[in-house]
């Protein structure tokens, strides 16, 4: 099978600090792979190394079946950095023209591609306005459009939805869906876990430069937190005792219990709570989420 992108044994250190440790991943064409990890985990370094901006100490990268040298041709790649890497004092159209030319789009095709990109990013009405005057969401969309104007086979997006409203975020993920539908392979770093759950084919969790888990959402859930639902009960006061199979959360009033037997466990659990003599303020049943997987794999402590 030919992958759009393969990373094998990628390692990188700055002095004694290892930022990538033997990272490997495969990305088939038309798939969306999300890199998850706390801040400083090595996600951006991995993306920059794929772009050729970081020279790996070890490991290799293959693009469309072709091994990439550190300074080799990466024209089948599209890169969308986390910052607004556009010229604020150029119009949206001019930005697209400029980056189209940088990516080798011929002058003959440029106008067509720019119009297409403007329509795709819903910026056609503001095509001749300065990018610096755009809202955050519009800048994000233009930022993405500039990175994919040349129809790359693989697009790397570093947190493309930071600081945008829900509507813009939704539109950005729709744009990514459209790209994927065209057969473009995408690597994405984001902290929007709900979107990842909905749209991603593969999830790779990185922590401290190492891949700690990889697979589909179901695979990750099975491998980490399991498929059991969880009962969460918030009481009005601290209970005198903790019932069997329950756990008391740090706030002292929230009890949790895994429901491995489904509804049968639920009825038993509720009966046990009633025996505590406390008033139930809130009760919910949660299914396993990516957030739970993420916290399970990387811990809850801050990494900044």
């Amino acid at each position: 099978m030919t992958f759009a992108l393969r990373v094998s044994g990628a390692s990188k250190s700055y002095g004694s600090r290892a930022v990538l440790r033997d990272v490997s991943l495969d990305l088939p064409q038309g798939q969306l792979l999300t890199l998850l990890g706390p801040n400083g985990a090595g996600k951006t370094t991995l993306i920059r190394s794929i772009c050729g901006r970081v020279r790996l100490d070890q490991g290799e990268i293959e693009l469309l079946g072709r091994k990439l040298s550190p300074s080799g041709d990466r024209s089948p790649l599209g890169f969308v950095p986390q910052d607004f890497a556009i010229y604020p004092d150029l119009t949206a159209r001019q930005n697209l023209e400029v980056f189209g030319r940088f990516h080798g789009v011929t002058r003959r095709r440029l106008r067509y591609e720019v119009d297409e990109a403007l329509a795709w990013s819903l910026l056609i009405d503001r095509a001749d306005d300065l990018a610096g005057d755009f809202s955050g969401g519009m800048k994000r969309r233009l930022n993405i459009a500039c990175g994919v104007l040349h129809h790359p086979a693989v697009v790397l997006l570093d947190e493309p939805t930071v600081g945008v409203d829900p509507q813009s975020r939704e539109r950005i993920f729709e744009m990514l869906d459209e790209l994927r539908a065209r057969g473009t392979a995408i690597i994405l770093t984001t902290h929007q876990l709900d979107e990842v759950e909905r749209r991603c084919d593969q999830i790779v969790v990185i922590d401290s430069g190492r891949i700690v888990a990889a697979g589909t959402l179901d695979q990750l859930i099975d491998a980490t937190v399991g498929r059991d639902q969880e009962l969460v009960v918030t009481l009005d006061r601290h209970p005198l005792r903790v019932p069997a199979h329950f756990a008391l959360e740090a706030d002292g009033i929230t009890l949790t219990r895994r429901l491995s037997q489904g509804v049968r466990d639920l009825s038993l659990a509720i009966a046990e709570v009633q025996l505590l003599g406390c008033r139930v303020e809130q009760l919910s049943v949660k299914t396993p989420t990516l957030q739970a997987v993420f916290l399970k794999l990387t811990g809850k402590e801050l990494r900044e």
């Binding site: 772009c51 041709d73 024209s75 986390q82 607004f84 890497a85 940088f102």
Partner: peptide, 13 residues
């Protein structure tokens, strides 16, 4: 500072 240089350097430029 804005990352535009990085983007340019990942292109064919």
């Amino acid at each position: 500072e804005t990352g535009t240089l990085e983007r340019m350097l990942t292109s064919r430029l």
